[in-house]
């Protein structure tokens, strides 16, 4: 088995807030291999975006990142300085954001924004960068790519802009693509197209992909491996098959119960939802962070739960 491309050990993100320190990501570890898609899934506010931004070193100014190691290929991202990190970003690792409507600069043409990263990292002449941009626009399924280069973001629809964002992320042929809810802002038919496209490109270019989503339907379609996050921790991780066919953590089961199943869920049936609210992330949490909402909770859950594992499947719960 090959070494993982990305290996995260003990990553935490702290944000100072009025009442103390908001611990948005709490000591998480995971690995992604080349050519593999890891889906990070969890409710809103559980720290998915902070995890992604921490990998890219794009956290908000106040947020502090701590990690034992963030191995990426030959580098440890935790020890790189801003300049070295800048050299990797956009070249070896790229990111796509949730909001295609605001993620592109309104003042520059699509072509300009596509070409600049390539020119910076490859020191390529303008016409080579342009050719590359056209090629990638075609690759993400945009017709008339040559003309699109001269257009401004406001002239494109949301779906097209997200395709442009994908093309932009792929300009330098990155080893790792981090996609933070890339389809959430799009309508359903476009969502499916974009996901399919991402999946296809990931395979074709043999990239590693970390795809963040709160939609288990998305996970089912694209994930090789899944990490389920709750309150800043990874509570369960495993292959997509393991997570979908034998979920162990009550939170994962709760999430799965929320997906409507065609044929099984009757029209008008209430969709499942997990009762209760996420605990505050300010300060330290002792014990299982899910216990207040958990149907199985017992006295033992007040202590930090053990991590059980079976093959590549691991979960943070007293239940086996």
């Amino acid at each position: 088995m090959s070494d993982p491309l990305l290996s995260v050990e003990g990553l935490s993100v702290d944000i100072p807030v009025a009442g103390g320190t908001l611990r948005a990501v709490r000591d998480i570890s995971f690995q992604v291999k080349r050519g593999e898609t890891l889906c990070v899934v969890g409710e809103s506010g559980c720290g998915k975006s902070m995890t992604a931004l921490a990998l890219m070193d794009l956290l908000p100014r106040r947020a502090k990142r701590r990690a034992q190691s963030l191995r990426f290929g030959k580098n440890d991202l935790a020890t790189l300085d801003a300049k070295q990190m800048n050299a990797l970003r956009g070249d070896r690792m790229a990111m796509i954001f949730q909001e295609p409507m605001t993620a592109l600069n309104p003042a520059y043409t699509i072509g300009n924004q596509l070409e600049e990263a390539y020119q910076r990292h490859r020191k390529a002449p303008a016409d080579e960068a342009r050719a590359r941009a056209v090629h990638l626009l075609e690759k993400v399924g945009i017709a008339n790519a040559g003309q699109r280069l001269g257009q401004y973001p406001h002239q494109l629809s949301g779906g097209l802009r997200q395709r442009v964002m994908i093309a932009m992320a792929l300009m330098c042929g990155p080893d790792l693509l981090v996609a933070d809810e890339p389809t959430t802002a799009l309508d359903v038919t476009i969502q499916a197209q974009i996901l399919l496209l991402l999946r296809q490109l990931q395979r074709e270019l043999d990239m590693a992909m970390v795809l963040i989503t709160h939609d288990l339907g998305v996970v089912a379609r694209v994930a090789d491996r899944v990490a389920v996050m709750y309150a800043g921790q990874i509570v369960e991780t495993g292959t997509a098959a393991e997570i979908f066919s034998s979920p162990r953590h009550p939170y994962t089961r709760g999430l799965l119960a929320c997906i409507p199943v065609p044929g099984k869920t009757k029209r008008g049936d209430e969709l499942g939802s997990i009762p209760g609210i996420v605990p505050s992330l300010v300060g330290t949490l002792v014990g299982c962070s899910f216990r207040e909402r958990c149907g199985f909770s017992a006295a033992i859950c007040a202590a930090d739960p053990p991590v059980h594992s079976a093959a590549s499947h691991a979960w943070r719960c007293v239940l086996r």
Binding site: L58, F97, L104, N105, R120
Partner: peptide, 24 residues
């Protein structure tokens, strides 16, 4: 967001501040 995109592309701080931010 678009400034974050520019940083995610690994552009130099000068390019982020002047080309992407100041221009707007």
């Amino acid at each position: 967001d678009f400034v974050r995109t520019a940083r995610a592309k690994g552009l130099s701080p000068t390019s982020v501040v002047f080309k992407h931010a100041l221009r707007n």
